[in-house]
Simulated scan of single mutants.
Amino acid sequence: MKIKSSEFVISAVSPKQYPDDGLPEIALAGRSNVGKSSLINKLLLRKNLARTSSQPGKTQQLNYYRINEELFFVDVPGYGYAKVSKTEREAWGRMIENYLREREPLKLVLQLVDLRHPPTALDVSMYEWLSHYGIPICIVGTKADKLTKSQMPKHGKIVRETLGMPKGQPLVLFSSETGQGRDELWSIIEQAAGLPGETPAESAE
């Protein structure tokens, strides 16, 4: 994907705030601090479009980013952060579930897991929930640069086995530091969004 334009559009908390232009949407889900913002920035070759935070759970809305006037990335609130009230967690949960189940332009969920560690119980629950409702999923193992090349296959196998992934379901090993997995992930995104594939290229920021 040649990035010609990318912009933050809105932090939405209800369907009436979602964009209504019908562009395909790619959602990013994962527990807090798994690296969603860093992944967005690396995919878009931007340094600070999606703001990273040392405070887990900071994303409390659905953050929409428009790319090339062709599709949206939708950053979903991170799950598994305990320092918010039960009421807040339940409200986020309802918003996220309604979005993932009912949003017609949603074409794919990128579920991010930390490749360094086995998926958590919450990771497994999210994966099983998405699978149950037939929502297309691509698992992204983040922070791959923290492992050696020889460790990656073993850790990838652990992710597949822990989640119970079927053969053929994509697992992309990704690093926001080195760019590993960027081209592979863009290819999957373009296919899911129904966009013509392009030779990945650097954008002029």
Rank of each mutant, 00 (worst) to 15 (best):
I3T: 12
S6M: 04
I10D: 09
S11A: 13
V13S: 12
V13Y: 13
K16Y: 14
K16G: 13
K16D: 15
Q17K: 04
Q17P: 13
D20H: 12
D20N: 14
P24C: 14
P24H: 14
E25W: 08
I26Q: 04
N33R: 00
V34E: 07
V34N: 09
I40F: 03
N41D: 10
N41T: 09
K42H: 03
K42A: 07
L43C: 03
K47V: 05
N48Y: 01
L49C: 12
L49H: 11
S54C: 02
S54P: 13
T59L: 15
Q60Y: 00
Q61R: 03
R66I: 08
E70I: 02
E70R: 12
F72A: 01
F72W: 03
V74Q: 10
G78A: 07
Y81G: 06
A82K: 00
V84F: 03
V84K: 05
T87G: 13
T87Q: 07
T87C: 00
E90A: 10
I96C: 09
E97M: 00
N98F: 14
E102W: 11
P105T: 09
K107I: 05
K107L: 07
L112K: 00
V113N: 09
D114M: 04
R116D: 15
P119V: 01
A121W: 02
D123Q: 03
S125M: 02
E128Q: 15
L130N: 14
Y133Q: 10
P136T: 12
I137P: 08
K143C: 08
A144F: 06
D145V: 06
K146H: 08
L147G: 13
K149Y: 05
K149N: 13
Q151N: 07
P153T: 08
V159R: 03
R160P: 15
E161K: 01
G164T: 10
M165H: 11
P166W: 02
Q169Y: 01
L171T: 00
L173C: 05
L173S: 13
Q180C: 01
G181V: 00
D183L: 02
E190Q: 14
A192P: 13
G194E: 14
G194W: 05
L195H: 11
P196V: 02
E198V: 01
A201W: 02
E202D: 06
A204V: 09
E205F: 10
